[in-house]
């Protein structure tokens, strides 16, 4: 147990370091982008005088390192800063969108994770059977289509015929049941996108364990194959499975901007892309920090679970 706590503390510290490096990298990248907020926000009609006036007003004429240090100073005190374009506190912008993104992630995860693990286990149980191959081929064809395309196909089959809405433009006041209904198609699209990866890893991890001597032993003792998989193989294959689930959950939080566009879903990804488009550095910084925290946090959680479920790792040293 002590090992575990030390590990968590160590990892959290490293996580903070990662976030710091990330904020620096993002800041430099956005700085390196040609053009700045003043030009982008005025678009085709920008006049040099108006651009200069906006720069003066927003302090964009200050040297980059000073702006970064100012931003960092606010950040350390828990202040996400103010959006340059909207002149509104970023926390107000991010909070409702983060809530939507988390809702969609959770919704998708509730469908995709059990589905992937069950399919993966069944595929390993009936490996090389037609069930195995068909589920495998279906999953592979689902991930080999671009997300927007999967979305369009679902819209064609399920939305235009009137079963589900094609737009998931939920607002904070939408009741839960209606939210679930409205977000069904994006959730299904994402399910199709992430299931294959998790399923294949589950299958591979279990089959990997099945080759080990102790499983051979269990076989020889005459234990039923399904029991071997559930009781003997699965617990030992948990670590890689949890890892791949964490990776996919992180993807669901950070990588769904295209699904947001197709289904008109007000999520965090669109905010960040617009932030990049308009060179609104604080918005990009804040959303990338949120994404990165989700990534670091989920990975940490996966490691905790795999360590906690593995007695050998728990008692090491």
């Amino acid at each position: 147990m002590k090992n575990l706590i030390i590990m968590i503390i160590k990892r959290l510290a490293l996580g903070v370091l990662t976030l710091f490096l990330l904020s620096l990298l993002i800041f430099l990248s956005v700085e390196a982008l040609p053009g700045d907020l003043a030009q982008e926000i005025l678009g085709q009609q920008a006049t040099p005088e108006a651009v200069a006036a906006i720069r003066r007003q927003l302090g964009l004429d200050l040297p980059p390192h000073i702006r970064y240090i100012e931003w960092l100073g606010g950040m350390v005190q828990g202040d996400f800063g103010t959006s340059l374009a909207l002149k509104r506190p970023i926390i107000d912008l991010i909070a409702p969108r983060l809530q939507n993104t988390l809702f969609l992630t959770l919704y998708t995860a509730c469908i995709a994770v059990p589905l992937a693990i069950i399919l993966g286990m069944m595929a390993s149980l009936f490996r090389n059977s037609y069930f195995d191959r068909i589920s495998n081929a279906t999953a592979l064809s689902a991930i080999s289509m671009p997300e927007f395309f999967v979305g369009y196909i679902l819209i064609y089959f399920l939305a235009l015929s009137g079963y589900f809405p094609s737009m998931a433009n939920i607002t904070p006041s939408t009741p839960l049941l209606e939210k679930l209904y409205a977000c069904f198609l994006p959730a299904l699209t994402l399910t199709l996108v992430v299931t294959a990866h998790m399923m294949r890893m589950t299958r591979a991890a279990i089959i990997n364990i099945l080759a080990l001597p102790y499983i051979e032993m269990a076989h020889l003792k005459g234990i039923k194959p399904s029991r071997i998989i559930f009781r003997h193989a699965l617990p030992n294959a948990l670590a890689p499975i949890v890892n791949v689930v964490a990776l996919n959950l992180a993807y669901l939080i950070t990588g769904v901007v295209i699904v947001e566009i197709v289904f008109v879903f007000p999520g965090l990804g669109q905010l960040m892309v617009d932030g990049v488009r308009f060179r609104d550095v604080p918005v990009v910084q804040a959303s990338s920090l949120v994404f990165a925290s989700a990534y670091v946090g989920l990975n940490l959680l996966a490691d905790i679970i795999s360590t906690a479920t593995n007695p050998r790792l728990m008692r090491q040293k």
Binding site: T18, L21, L25, T254
Partner: peptide
Amino acid sequence: GRLIDVLMAIPSLIFSLLMLTI
């Protein structure tokens, strides 16, 4: 490991958007 972590923590689509624009 830290450097790779930083790169992985940025959504890949956004990262490529940034890099390709630069």
